[in-house]
């Protein structure tokens, strides 16, 4: 079984701060990490490798620097890493990204595709389902557990708002995984040494045989109209009062607004 995991390198959004003077994001010094939902997917793939002898291939789309992150995945035990990188892919929305990834997946071949549910920089959760659609194969999103693989059938648990579903799907299928479904393994010392010698396969636009109108900004139906940092709302009244007066004023306000009822 050939498992392909889609992985994105993202800025650690919990470390991002806004420069209040300029109203822009402070990106300097913000570490790049492997997107958490994707890392959970890598771990699931490595578990299947151990139990079924599957091979694990990583595919990532991003700038050339992302190859450092991919080397780290070799140290966790994956078999092959492919980085899709080209200036022509810049500005891609999820529609164009999924077209690009699908072209790479067609070229690689696959039995099972795992993608993280969503990336912490964009939070769209769209690339997994859209890649499945481009490939014409089924999907199961919000996967919380991979229970078994029997022949060409995979059984997973999906987490919904009010219930969980045990789902059977025929391979090939795209699963999207949730961080928290497992504890990703650490890098292995021997593998870290070995990973130094492993190469990341780099594919550019010319390697994918895809129409230029389907990638990058040109292939993206959504366009960014404008960006801003924070809706400044509410004219706050701030009080510094002794605790008992604070309590009185809050209760009095709630009473006036009819938020205290008998």
């Amino acid at each position: 079984m050939k498992i392909v995991v889609l992985v994105k390198q993202v800025p650690d959004s919990t470390e991002i701060r806004v420069d209040k003077a300029t109203g822009t994001l402070i990106r300097a010094g913000v570490p790049s990490i492997i997107n958490p939902d994707d890392l959970a997917g890598v771990e699931e793939a490595l578990k299947l490798k151990e139990t079924t002898g599957a091979t694990v291939t990583i595919v990532s789309m991003g700038p050339p620097q992302a190859s450092e992150m991919l080397k780290e995945l070799y140290a966790r035990g994956v078999d092959e890493c492919v980085l899709i990188t080209d200036r022509k892919f810049a500005g891609a929305d999820t529609c164009a990204t999924s077209s690009t990834l699908a072209a790479a997946l067609d070229k690689l071949g696959y039995d099972l595709i795992i993608a993280g549910r969503q990336a912490i920089d964009g939070d769209t959760a769209q690339v997994g389902p859209q890649t499945a659609e481009r490939l014409g194969i089924p999907q199961v999103t919000y996967v919380d557990e991979i229970k078994a693989v029997n022949g060409d059938t995979i059984t997973v648990k999906k987490a919904l708002e009010d219930c969980e579903q045990i789902i059977e799907a025929k391979l090939p299928v795209v699963l999207t995984t949730l961080s928290g479904m497992n504890n990703p393994r650490y890098m292995n010392c021997n593998d870290i040494v070995d990973s130094m010698n492993k190469e990341v396969t780099v594919w550019t636009f010319d390697d994918l045989g895809i129409d230029e109108s389907k990638v990058g900004l040109a292939g993206s139906p959504t366009k960014v109209h404008s960006t801003f940092t924070k809706d400044v709302s509410a004219d706050t009244e701030t009080f510094t009062l002794p605790a008992n007066e604070t309590a009185k004023l809050i209760a009095q306000t709630l009473k006036e607004k009819q938020l205290i009822t008998k």
Partner: peptide, 17 residues
Amino acid sequence: RPTFGGNLFGTIICPDT
């Protein structure tokens, strides 16, 4: 919509589709 964990807001349009 918010992005980057709510640190940045983007206004998105679909002018051609």
